[in-house]
Simulated scan of single mutants.
Amino acid sequence: MTAPARPDDRTLALRAASELLRALASPVRMGIVRELSTGGKRVHELVAALGVNQPLVSQHLRVLRTSRIVTTHREAREVEYTLVDDHVAHIVLDAIRHVEE
């Protein structure tokens, strides 16, 4: 009996990219990334910009944090959310531009 084949680096990269796209596969999460592409925001700012309630924004931020797309910085009693890097913003903004053409 042979051992199962180990995935190579390309396969692992495809899986990781798939997980990234899965984490973005929500209009609210894409909206959050779009808003954060201009700089850090607090939850109440995202709620106002997206027009959805705070628990929903918080739930989607949790998904984005778990996927390492956003990070946090605490300032006194408030938490500011920022993108880990600009690559994800480019993906989201390009996708939005593509469907608007």
Rank of each mutant, 00 (worst) to 15 (best):
I32V: 12
T72E: 14
I91C: 09
V99Q: 13
R97F: 06
E35M: 07
D85I: 04
T11V: 06
V70Q: 04
G31W: 03
E100C: 04
I69T: 03
T66Q: 06
L83W: 03
A3R: 03
S37G: 08
G51W: 08
R65W: 00
D8Q: 08
A25M: 06
H87A: 11
H60S: 11
A16V: 14
P55Q: 13
I96R: 15
A5C: 04
T2C: 00
S37Y: 07
T72S: 10
H87T: 03
D86H: 08
D94C: 13
L24P: 03
S18F: 12
R22I: 05
N53C: 01
G51L: 07
L64Q: 00
H90M: 05
G40L: 04
S58N: 11
T71I: 01
R34S: 09
S67L: 02
E35C: 13
V47K: 03
G51M: 03
S26Y: 07
A13Y: 05
L36D: 04
E101C: 06
E78K: 15
L93W: 11
V70T: 11
L93D: 02
H87N: 07
E35G: 04
H90Y: 09
G51N: 04
A16N: 11
A17E: 09
E80C: 06
T38N: 11
M30R: 15
D86V: 01
L21S: 12
V47E: 01
L64I: 02
A49E: 14
V52E: 12
V88N: 00
T72W: 00
A25K: 00
L36I: 05
A23R: 04
N53V: 06
D86S: 14
I32D: 01
R62N: 15
T38Y: 13
D8L: 06
A25H: 05
V28N: 04
V79H: 03
T38C: 06
V84F: 06
T82H: 15
A25R: 06
A76Y: 10
V52R: 04
L64S: 02
V57K: 05
L61A: 02
S26W: 03
M1S: 09
R65L: 03
D86Q: 09
L83S: 06
R29K: 12
P27C: 02
A16M: 10
D94A: 15
R29D: 00
T82C: 13
V92F: 00
H60N: 15
R77G: 10
A16F: 01
V43F: 02
D86N: 09
D9E: 13
T66K: 10
E45R: 13
H44V: 13
D94N: 15
E80M: 05
G39R: 01
R97W: 11
I91P: 02
R77L: 14
L46F: 12
L50V: 06
E45I: 04
T72M: 10
D85R: 06
G51A: 09
A23P: 01
G40F: 01
N53G: 14
N53K: 14
N53I: 01
L64D: 00
H87W: 09
V84N: 13
V47A: 04
N53P: 03
